[in-house]
Write a protein that binds this DNA or RNA. Sequence first.
DNA 1: ACAGTTCAGTGATAGGTTCTAACGAAAATT
DNA 2: AATTTTCGTTAGAACCTATCACTGAACTGT
Lengths: 228, 228
Amino acid sequence: MAKSSAKTDAETGPQADAGTPRERYRAQVRAEIKQHAWQQIATAGASALSLNAIAKQMGMSGPALYRYFASRDDLITELIREAYRSLADTLHATAATGADLTVLAHTLRDWAREDPHRYLLIYGTPVPGYHAPQDVTGISDEIMKTLLDACAASLAARKTPPPAPAFLAEHREWAAGHPAPPAALHLALTFWTRMHGVLSLELAGHFAGMGFDSALLFAAELDALAPR
Amino acid sequence: MAKSSAKTDAETGPQADAGTPRERYRAQVRAEIKQHAWQQIATAGASALSLNAIAKQMGMSGPALYRYFASRDDLITELIREAYRSLADTLHATAATGADLTVLAHTLRDWAREDPHRYLLIYGTPVPGYHAPQDVTGISDEIMKTLLDACAASLAARKTPPPAPAFLAEHREWAAGHPAPPAALHLALTFWTRMHGVLSLELAGHFAGMGFDSALLFAAELDALAPR
DNA sequence: ACAGTTCAGTGATAGGTTCTAACGAAAATT
DNA sequence: AATTTTCGTTAGAACCTATCACTGAACTGT
């Protein structure tokens, strides 16, 4: 697939396309670092991610990693980008099969439960001083777009569509170029917030000890949102 | 040697105010530490809380704080306890005036927006290895109880109560001693998850740049939940 | 083929964090 | 007044991120 960003800027040469051995090695080490980072995040959370520990696991000394990532924040940004990319691709692949909102929701839930820290990395408590770069918000827009498509399709298939919301007729800088009616915007927003509401509390462990099946609550919320 | 400590431990009752001068001094320093901690959390988030920085702000050196809090986690636990306590009291005070679910929801939203990091501290991404002590989960149960009361009252006042959910009839270890019908349990859960869904995404800044008023989305969700 | 350049990885170092340990001084108790 | 308790200090261990100067290997141009 997208082999690399070799052709992007600096390297002006035909051999940059094929990838020099150096570039391939570099990409491999970067991937290995990210792999260890994910493993560390999955066990101890994003806040406990340590460049030093990763370097030690890989058998090299700490400062070596700075050849591959400018800073710890830079690595985390890359992981966030990967997480967004994975979610966008997963949802897009599911939506491409003509799936309705229900299976899209379960795809989201499965993706989140597959690696809770990955979900919380992008939708959980943000790092205070952190600002996502442009391309990351671009992927986020991608996700909203596939969600909007699914919502528009879901509304079109209903005999009794819900009443149009009042507050979304104006002001819709998001989805600016999207031909979705206000009702679809509202459905997408409520879908997002309600699914996230259940998911985030579930993944954060706030349902622990309450003795009910969060999958059933998720399903109930979904049913209220997209009745069949 | 244990004579005075026995009194200190046991006497956390009504006259905790009037202790020995030592105890009052100790309590005051503890409060001052927590105050600085809150200020620091409000500006930089909980993950950036630094005992050293607090000590420097108070004009004393780092290790001195360990006379008042056993560890950084211990301080954070105390802040979590305070946050839960504040939310429980705020909600309880509002509920005591006979307020309905709508104003209770706005009380919650106002409390959260008053100090976003405080809300995210208790409902945001949890620290991986952290386990809340017993009394903290007790306060959390208090919150659920007032919410349940309000939900039961809201249901009783409706002409057409929503259908009872299927999955909450059994399994309800939470609210074990609470005389609420399954419909109230379901309403409380959906209230919680939906309000948290909107609030957490809003506080985390995920609505930034979307150009709609999150207050209206909150109100719309609330209206769908507790129609008038 | 040799010289020059680029680059991965190293150790040393600076400054930050939490937290422990030992010590001096002040305050409360006996 | 003497003793004990407690507070705050400095010193230091074990981490962390991040920069710097340097070695040694690999690639590049002539």
